[in-house]
Amino acid sequence: MARWFRHLPAAFYLILAYVFIFLPVVILVLFSFQDGQLPVPPFDGPSLRWYERMISDSRLVEALGHSVIVALLSSLVATLLGFLAAYALARRNMPFGGGIRYLLMAPLTVSYLIIGMGLLITFALIGIPKSLLAVGIGHVVINLPLCFAIVYSQMGEHQRNIERAAQDLGANDLQTLVLITIPILQPALFASFCLAATLSWDEFIIAFLLTRFDVTLPVIIFEMLSAGLNPVLNAAGTVVFAISILFVLLALLLATRRKRANVDAAG
């Protein structure tokens, strides 16, 4: 009894912290099912009418499609480029390898706003119009350092010895890459793809700065928000949130599966 009592402040603090973190999301999701006209209390009972409204809103559906395309393609490119950079830096003796590595990671420290502004000016200079392509390039710029870091971290000495073993047994560089390196790195590649897709999926600032007619979902939500609160936006926000969670869960699932495999390997 006394012991239970002693933990009370800690439990209270914990609950408070969770409320602080999750309450906004819970409210957003809850009022997407609102049966009234406004996403504010009181809650008038569950209804899917705003989801129906969202699906029938061609601007929202179109933007959702754009977001999916930008997320998938930019993540694919970022993962590919990140892998190539990691492979070169981890496997080849490059002059200034350390410097190149830091330079590759440096964009992580720059805010999206600055990157977005820089891209805006650069694209204007070289004649790339505001478009989904421009956003996609922007997302590759912000996600490449992350993809590089994830893949690079998995290319350590043990992995290198495995590749050496393949070469020792007669495999050439290409065979080693295709038959050994990529299959072993596959969980890391997929995790970096999922993470990049999550970040691209709900990225706003760069998408806002670099689009004009075709926009992504976060941008259209922002535009519609400026016209006032609307439960349709709650529904759209809930979809954005759900898909993000899905990507994160996928990445997490792969990471834990990999960890389990490593535990097996150690045992």
Binding site: H158, N161, I162, R164, A165, A166, Q167, D168, L169, G170, A171, N172, I180, I184, A261, A265
Partner: peptide, 17 residues
């Protein structure tokens, strides 16, 4: 290594997982 008549047993085995 690929074209040498040697084969190595690595300390960490380096098996293909």
């Amino acid at each position: 290594p690929a074209s040498r008549p040697t084969a190595t047993v690595f300390q960490d085995y380096a098996l293909f997982p």
